[in-house]
Design a protein around this nucleic acid. Structure first.
Length: 429
RNA sequence: GCCGGGGUGUGGUAGCGGCUAUCCCUGGGGACUGUGGAUCCCUAGACCUGGGUUCAAAUCCCAGCCCCGGCCCCA
């Protein structure tokens, strides 16, 4: 009976895995160079960690279960909450800012479709301890640099929920209702938004201003909006955003100001940003990164530390990323024991294993495990695009040498093992 | 949860009521008892699952599962 893969999960074949590892290495490298350190949290957590943050409604989209001890657990649907939980539990005393990055698999019970799976990977980074414009700019710039490292061009959209919340507060809208408004903005439900605000008695000119505010987009839009009296110049959120945008130019990050980004979650407090893939290869799922400034730690019993961070949808990046396989050099060496038919080949096999061990100290090396003929072994070496075949047979044993065959040129030569090592080293360098 | 399009060897496919299910690629072996890529031969390997219609189903019908895409959602 054939067992199918669970719905929404994927197998990664060697080729795909190689690609993902290369991407991962490049992304890690950038994060490390920016002074971020890797952390890792458990694959499952107490379900409460996630419901606390986003309400019971998310239970239906989580893989949740009870363990044998009666604990209510869930496979993590995202990584920000666990990271902040870890900070509150173990890292409180670390010097600020605490800069971390992570990559891990997450699980959501949703309908699979293009670039959307039930098990997926996120790569993220957080600055815990700051939500200053400097921290915000750094986080956006880091995300930008990471994208560059994997050769992906995308659009960075920067918004600021503080600005919108401020405007609503000034109009005496209750906090709870502000959250609802933010969610509607995030969804882009313009009609409903207007309807809702009218219903709760928001004055018409405020509704109008807010609508114009969320339409603010583009380079000089912030100044224009201010000149238009949509934003009070004394507004702290405005000052913060202005500063952030200036810092982004120092980082040479091209961005689009988009105050319509609201990131429906209640805990975002200031800057929010999203990055979209632009050439449409991801279909409906073109958002590849999201982040912003938030306050979560207090929710998990820690101090009210401000944080700024982002998370990439790693699989979506992998979908876009094209690895040039031809640019990858041949590399392997295949050691070929030349067995004689109907004879004791132990000495030959022994020598082949020892030669392989020597070569493995510096190059990827394989030895036949199929008891194949010389011809079949060379055929295999060719199939895996190996660079060299090192032949070991009774003739070589007699002379204390090996035969090195360059599979690219077809030239071969008998030489000592030391010379063989030297030759392969020189060629593969 | 909803809507549409699909599931034939490892991958890609042909067949769309009737012969032993086609071809390419792939895996293993051989022609070639110490030399790869070419050629040829042998061999392995498939009609998603279950029901129905029919003398006869890969083919038509229904349901489920899975895949692809979209809606919703995306904490």
């Amino acid at each position: 009976m054939r067992i199918e893969r669970a719905r929404g999960t994927r197998d990664f074949l060697p080729r795909e895995m190689r690609k993902r590892r290369i991407m991962e290495a490049r992304m890690r490298e950038i994060a490390e160079r920016w002074g971020y350190e890797e952390i890792s949290t458990p694959t499952f957590e107490l379900a409460e960690l996630f419901t606390l943050k986003s309400g019971d409604a998310i239970l239906k989209e989580m893989y949740e279960f009870e363990d044998k001890g009666g604990r209510h657990l869930a496979l993590r649907p995202e990584l920000t909450a666990p990271v902040i939980r870890m900070y509150v539990n173990e890292l409180k005393m670390a010097s600020k800012p605490t800069k971390v990055y992570y990559i891990g698999n997450c699980f959501r019970y949703e309908e699979p479709q293009k670039a959307r799976y039930r098990e997926f990977w996120q790569f993220g980074a957080e600055i815990i301890g700051s939500d200053s414009p400097e921290a915000q700019a750094e986080i956006i710039a880091l995300a930008h640099a990471i994208l560059q490292s994997v050769g992906i061009t995308a659009e960075v959209h920067v918004g600021h929920v503080g600005l919108l919340r401020e405007r609503l507060r000034a109009a005496k809208v209750e906090e709870e209702r502000i959250n609802t408004v933010m969610r509607l903005i995030d969804k882009g439900e313009r009609e409903e938004l207007i309807h809702f605000m009218n219903e709760i008695g928001v004055e018409h000119h405020v509704v109008d201003e807010l609508l114009r505010l969320i339409d603010v987009q583009g380079e000089d839009a912030l100044q224009a909006a201010q000149a238009d009296n949509l934003i009070a110049s004394a507004s702290p959120a405005f000052k913060e955003l202005e500063m952030l945008l200036e810092l982004l130019t120092y980082y040479n990050v091209a961005y689009t100001l988009n105050l319509g980004i609201a990131r429906g979650l209640d805990y975002y407090t200031g800057m929010v940003f999203e990055i979209y893939e632009v050439d449409g290869s991801l279909g409906a799922q073109n958002q590849i990164c999201g982040g912003g400034s938030y306050r979560l730690a207090a929710l998990f019993g820690g101090d009210d530390v401000p944080s700024t961070g982002f998370a990439f949808g790693f699989d979506r990046l992998a979908e876009i990323f094209r690895l040039d396989e031809h640019a990858m050099p041949r590399g392997d060496v295949v050691v070929v024991p030349v067995r004689e038919r109907d004879q004791d080949n132990r000495e030959v096999v022994k020598e082949a294993i020892q030669v392989a061990s020597t070569l493995r100290e510096f190059v990827r090396t394989q030895v036949d495990v199929m008891n194949r003929s010389l011809s079949a072994q060379l055929s295999y070496a060719n199939a895996i695009r190996a660079s060299f075949a090192v032949l070991v047979g009774k003739n070589e044993l007699k002379e204390g040498k090996v035969t090195v065959r360059d599979l690219t040129t077809g030239m071969q030569e008998r030489m000592s093992l030391e010379d063989c090592v030297g030759r392969i080293r020189a060629t593969l360098r």
